[in-house]
Amino acid sequence: MASIKLDNLGKIYPGGSRAVGGVKLDIADGEFIVLVGPSGCGKSTLLRMVAGLESITEGEVRIGDRVVNKVEPADRDIAMVFQNYALYPHMSVRQNLAYGLKNRRTPKAEITRRVDEAAAILQIGPFLDRKPRALSGGQRQRVAMGRAIVREPAAFLFDEPLSNLDAKLRVAMRLEIKDLQKRLRTTSIYVTHDQLEAMTLADRLVVLNAGQVEQIGTPLDVYRRPASTFVAGFIGSPAMNLIPARAVPHLPGSAHAAVIGIRPEDLVPDPDGPIEMQVGAIEELGAQRLVHGKVNGADVTIALPSHGELSDRLRLNAAPEALHRFDDKSGKRLD
C-alpha cells in the first residue's frame, strides 16, 4: 500500500495534440479516487500514465516515495482491472489469477494460498477450473478483480470496469467494489464516465474536462459547490439548470453573475415565486416527474413529486442558498 502523487502530470501526443495537462493530485494511502469526465476528457490516458502503459511527457508520478516515470508497468507494484476484463482466454480462472505471481517467481505454496484467498473473497471458488468463456459477465469481472487482488499491489487501477455489465449487475458490483476496497484498504484510482458511479464510490472525485482538472473534492463537496459550470452540468442527475442571469433578473445575486445554476429539485412551485416557467415536455419517472420548460427563453428542468395536475404555466421559487453563481467567460464559480 502506498500514497500516489501526481505532480504537474501531462501528456502530449507525438502529433502535438495535448491529452492531459497540469494534473496535480495527492492521493493518500488507502484512498479511493475516482476520475470522472465525459469521453475524450483524458481520464483513461491519465490512469494509463499511472499504470505505465502510456509514456509520460510532462511532470512526475510517484508511487510511495519512488518516481516511476520510467519504470515498467510490472515493476510499479500496481494492478489494473480493464473494461473488457482482458482475461487470458486459454487459461483457466486459476491460471489467470496465478499468471502474474508466477512471472514474479512467487513460491508455489504462496500462489495457491493467495489464489484461494482471493477466490474466497470474491466467491469465485467454484469456477477456478473453468475457462473465462464459460463464465458470465459478472463472473468475469470478479476474476479480473481477483487477478488484481492476488498481487497484493500498492494500488488498484480500475478502467471503467463496470461499463460492460447490465444496469442491475453494475449497481451490485459497485457496492461490492466499494466494500472490497474498504476491507483491503488499498489505494485505488477508478475511471468512469458515469457520474452516479463516481459519486457512490469515491472518497474524493476528480472531475476532468478536456485534459484539465476542473475540480477535486469529496462527492458531496463537488455536488454542493461545483467549481464551474462544467462540473455543475456534469455531476448530478438530472443535470443542474444553468440559466443566463438576465432570464431570471429577480433572483438574488443575478446582477453580479452571468450564469445562475439551480438544481431541478431546488426549484419549487410557489404562487408568489419570481420565476415563471412555461411547461413543455413531461417525463414521468414514477417517484418523481421531470418537467421541462422555458423561463424567458432559457431551457429549465424541474423535478416535482409525481402527483397533482400541472398547469401550462408554473410560478417557481428557489431558496437563496440553493443558487450557484458562475462567471460567464471562465465558467468559474463566483463565491
Partner: peptide, 22 residues
C-alpha cells in the same frame, strides 16, 4: 485485444514470454 497485451505487461510478462504464454 490491446488490453490482453497490457494485462500481460502488468502481469510481468516480457515480449517473448507474452509470445510463448499467450
Amino acid at each position: 485485444p490491446d488490453e490482453l497485451v497490457e494485462a500481460a505487461r502488468i502481469d510481468g510478462a516480457g515480449p517473448m514470454k507474452f509470445f510463448r504464454d499467450i
